[in-house]
Each structure stands twice: as structure tokens, then as C-alpha cells.
Amino acid sequence: MLEGKVKWFNSEKGFGFIEVEGQDDVFVHFSAIQGEGFKTLEEGQAVSFEIVEGNRGPQAANVTKEA
């Protein structure tokens, strides 16, 4: 699992990017966010995740919000 911070997330469109120190930003789709209820992320929020190869390159999977 990697750790990063949410760079930005558009809850209307359901996607955004996660910043990872020393690496390129990683695309995140709302469907990759773990948990119940409305799936969104806040700018600057700490998250842990895995990287998988998507249709358009690397993207986040199994995203969990850090306490």
C-alpha cells in the first residue's frame, strides 16, 4: 500500500488525483474508494491505496481514508 494526499477531487464528476511524494500524481475514480455511503475525498486528505494499470495508465485502487 502507498500513502498520499488528495490533490483535488471533483465529487460531481467522481474523480480526482492523489499526490505521492517522489512520484507522478495518481488518478482516482470514486468507485475505488472503500467504505459505505457517498464516496468522495477532500483536498489534502491523507489516503492509502494501491496502484493498478487502468485503460489510460496507472490509477488508484482500494483507496482508504486515513484517520
Rank of each mutant, 00 (worst) to 15 (best):
M1V: 09
L2M: 13
E3C: 05
E3T: 11
G4W: 02
V6M: 03
V6N: 01
F9S: 02
F9V: 04
N10C: 04
N10D: 10
E12A: 13
E12D: 13
K13Q: 11
K13A: 08
G14I: 01
F15V: 08
F15I: 05
F15H: 15
G16L: 01
G16M: 01
G16K: 00
F17D: 00
F17M: 15
F17P: 00
I18N: 00
E19C: 06
E19D: 08
E19W: 09
V20K: 10
E21K: 09
G22K: 09
G22E: 07
G22W: 04
Q23I: 08
D24V: 15
D25L: 06
D25W: 07
D25R: 08
V26M: 06
F27V: 03
F27L: 04
H29A: 03
H29I: 05
H29C: 04
S31I: 11
S31R: 12
S31E: 06
A32C: 04
A32M: 05
A32Q: 07
I33S: 02
I33N: 01
Q34D: 05
Q34A: 15
G35W: 12
G35D: 15
G35K: 09
G35R: 04
E36G: 07
E36D: 15
E36H: 10
F38T: 06
F38K: 08
K39D: 05
K39H: 08
K39G: 08
K39E: 05
K39W: 06
T40M: 09
T40K: 08
L41H: 01
L41V: 06
L41P: 02
L41T: 03
E42S: 06
E43V: 10
E43N: 15
E43L: 08
G44T: 05
Q45H: 14
Q45R: 08
A46Q: 14
V47A: 02
V47W: 01
S48P: 00
S48E: 06
S48I: 07
F49W: 02
F49C: 03
E50W: 15
E50A: 12
E50T: 15
E50S: 14
E50R: 15
V52Y: 13
V52Q: 12
V52M: 09
V52W: 13
E53R: 12
G54P: 03
G54E: 11
G54Q: 05
N55C: 06
R56W: 13
R56F: 10
R56M: 06
G57E: 03
G57D: 03
G57H: 07
G57R: 08
P58K: 11
Q59E: 11
Q59Y: 13
Q59M: 14
Q59N: 07
Q59C: 04
A60T: 02
A60Y: 00
A61F: 11
A61Q: 10
A61I: 13
A61N: 12
A61E: 09
N62H: 08
N62I: 07
V63N: 01
V63C: 04
V63L: 07
V63A: 03
V63Q: 00
K65Q: 11
K65P: 08
K65W: 14
E66T: 15
E66Q: 10
E66D: 15
A67V: 12
A67H: 14
A67Y: 13
A67P: 12
